[in-house]
Computed example of a mutant assay.
Amino acid sequence: MSWATGVMVYFVIWWTVLFCILPLGVRRVENPGRGQEHGAPEKPDLIRKAIITTIVAAVLWVGFYVLHEADFFSFRRLEGS
Rank of each mutant, 00 (worst) to 15 (best):
L78A: 03
K43I: 05
A57M: 05
G33N: 05
G80Q: 14
P41T: 02
G80H: 15
D71A: 09
G25W: 01
H38L: 10
A70F: 13
W15Q: 08
I13G: 04
V56Q: 01
E79Y: 15
G6I: 00
S2T: 11
A50N: 00
P32K: 03
P32R: 04
R28I: 07
F75E: 12
L22E: 11
I13D: 01
V9I: 14
E37L: 11
S74C: 01
L18Q: 12
A57I: 02
W61A: 02
F73W: 14
M8F: 05
W15L: 14
I55W: 07
E79W: 15
V56P: 04
S81H: 15
S74G: 10
Q36A: 11
L46E: 09
P44I: 00
P23S: 08
F19Q: 08
W3V: 09
A50Q: 05
L22K: 10
R76L: 10
R34C: 08
P23E: 06
Y65T: 10
F72Q: 09
T5I: 08
V12F: 13
V62Y: 04
G33A: 09
W61D: 01
S74E: 03
E30G: 10
D45S: 12
Y10W: 15
E37Y: 10
V26C: 03
L67P: 03
F64L: 12
V62T: 11
V56Y: 00
V9H: 06
E30L: 11
I47E: 09
V12I: 15
T5E: 00
W15C: 04
G6S: 04
L60P: 01
R27Q: 14
Q36E: 15
A4L: 15
I52V: 14
G39S: 14
R77N: 12
V7G: 09
V17D: 00
L24D: 09
I47K: 09
V56A: 12
W3M: 08
R48N: 10
A40C: 02
F64H: 12
G80N: 14
Y65F: 15
A70R: 11
I51N: 01
M1A: 12
A57P: 06
T16V: 15
V66T: 02
L46T: 06
R28Y: 07
H68L: 08
M8I: 07
L24V: 13
P41Q: 11
T53K: 02
L78G: 13
V17A: 04
L60D: 01
V66Q: 03
V59Y: 05
D45F: 10
L24I: 15
F72R: 01
R28H: 11
Y10D: 04
V12T: 13
S74T: 05
L60V: 09
V66W: 00
A40V: 02
A57R: 03
L67A: 15
G63D: 06
W3C: 06
R77V: 09
F75D: 10
G80D: 15
F19V: 02
V12A: 14
R77D: 13
V62S: 02
I51P: 00
D45P: 04
C20Y: 04
V7T: 11
W14Y: 14
M1H: 06
I13A: 06
